[in-house]
Each structure stands twice: as structure tokens, then as C-alpha cells.
Simulated assay, not measured.
Amino acid sequence: MGNQTKVTEFIILGLSNNLQMQIFLFLGFLVVYLVTLLANMVIMLVIRADPHLHTPMYFFLSHLSFVDICYFSAIVPNMLVHFLAEHKTISVNSCIEQMFFFFLLAATEICILSAMAYDHYAAICDPLRYMDTMSTRICVQLASSAWAIGFFHALLNTVSALMFLKYCQSY
């Protein structure tokens, strides 16, 4: 018979208990978050606006920018709230949800970077057949595969965390 206490939230200890340091960290992370959002949005808009950039390399770069926006948005806003919050907790469901999106976006980013590496390999090692090797259909398949692999990676790890990890309340 194990501990039957049901955990509903986790306490977030944070990086510092000093209020001035928390405000400094909040402002620092907020600036980095806003710059990241702006830079990635500009990259995506420029790629969409200029027809000369409708090539496989920029297709993957656009997807990478979108993944980065989602990646930062999955973690940083909640972290910013907790820098200034009095009650620093996160519900178990929110934690699991955040973990799922973190794993999803991290694995997707790695797969998109791998697709970009393959694109560069094809451009350098077989330039005469590059347009056949990296057709629009292949690029879409590689991007879709990146998202599918990311989803299954996240699902596997999240379900494993839910099924096999036991949480107990401390007193």
C-alpha cells in the first residue's frame, strides 16, 4: 500500500527569492522573448513576400522560424508569470501539457534541422539533380514527417511520464 495522496500542483522554486533579481530576470527574459518573436516573424514574412526566396532552403527556414515561435511561446510566457507571481505553482495538467509541447517542438526542430542538412547536402553533392531531389512534394513530406516524428516523440514521453512516474505530496 503506497502513498494515496493525489498531487494536483507542483511548487515552482524559481531562480531567485530576491524580488529585485526576479524583476531583472523578468525584464531580461521578456526582452529576449519579444526579440525572438519579432525576428522569427520578420523572417517568415520576408520569405513569404519575396518570390525569389521560395526555395527549399527558405521553406525549411520558414518552418524553423515557426517552430521557434511556438517553442518559446510554450515555455516563456508561463515562466514570466511565475517571476512576478506571489503563489508560484503549476497544476499537474498544465505541467504535462507544457512538457508535451516542449517535447513536440524540440523534436520537430531537430527534424527540420536534419531536413535542412539534407537539403544542403543535395545542393552541394548533386547540384545537377537538386531540383528533382528537393521538389516541393519532397519538401512538404520532410516537413510533415518532422511534425509527425515530433508528435509521436512527445506522445511517447508524455504518456510514459503519466503512467510510470508516481508523485507524492511532501509535508
Score class of each variant (00 low, 15 high):
residue 110 I to M: 14
residue 92 V to A: 06
residue 86 E to W: 09
residue 92 V to K: 09
residue 82 H to T: 08
residue 96 I to K: 09
residue 84 L to K: 04
residue 84 L to N: 05
residue 105 L to S: 05
residue 111 C to S: 14
residue 104 L to F: 15
residue 84 L to M: 13
residue 110 I to K: 06
residue 91 S to C: 00
residue 87 H to W: 03
residue 98 Q to P: 00
residue 100 F to K: 03
residue 106 A to V: 08
residue 93 N to L: 10
residue 106 A to I: 04
residue 88 K to Y: 04
residue 84 L to P: 04
residue 120 H to T: 13
residue 110 I to G: 00
residue 101 F to C: 09
residue 99 M to R: 04
residue 106 A to C: 12
residue 81 V to P: 02
residue 92 V to H: 06
residue 102 F to C: 02
residue 95 C to M: 14
residue 85 A to D: 11
residue 110 I to T: 07
residue 123 A to F: 14
residue 89 T to Y: 04
residue 111 C to F: 02
residue 85 A to F: 03
residue 96 I to R: 15
residue 93 N to D: 15
residue 120 H to E: 14
residue 106 A to N: 10
residue 85 A to C: 07
residue 92 V to P: 03
residue 113 L to N: 10
residue 119 D to N: 15
residue 120 H to N: 14
residue 82 H to S: 12
residue 98 Q to R: 05
residue 87 H to P: 03
residue 88 K to F: 05
residue 81 V to D: 01
residue 95 C to K: 09
residue 84 L to S: 05
residue 122 A to T: 05
residue 113 L to M: 13
residue 82 H to Q: 14
residue 84 L to V: 13
residue 115 A to Y: 02
residue 103 F to M: 08
residue 117 A to E: 01
residue 121 Y to A: 12
residue 98 Q to D: 02
residue 83 F to H: 06
residue 123 A to L: 08
residue 91 S to A: 05
residue 92 V to C: 06
residue 93 N to V: 10
residue 111 C to P: 00
residue 105 L to W: 02
residue 103 F to G: 00
residue 89 T to C: 07
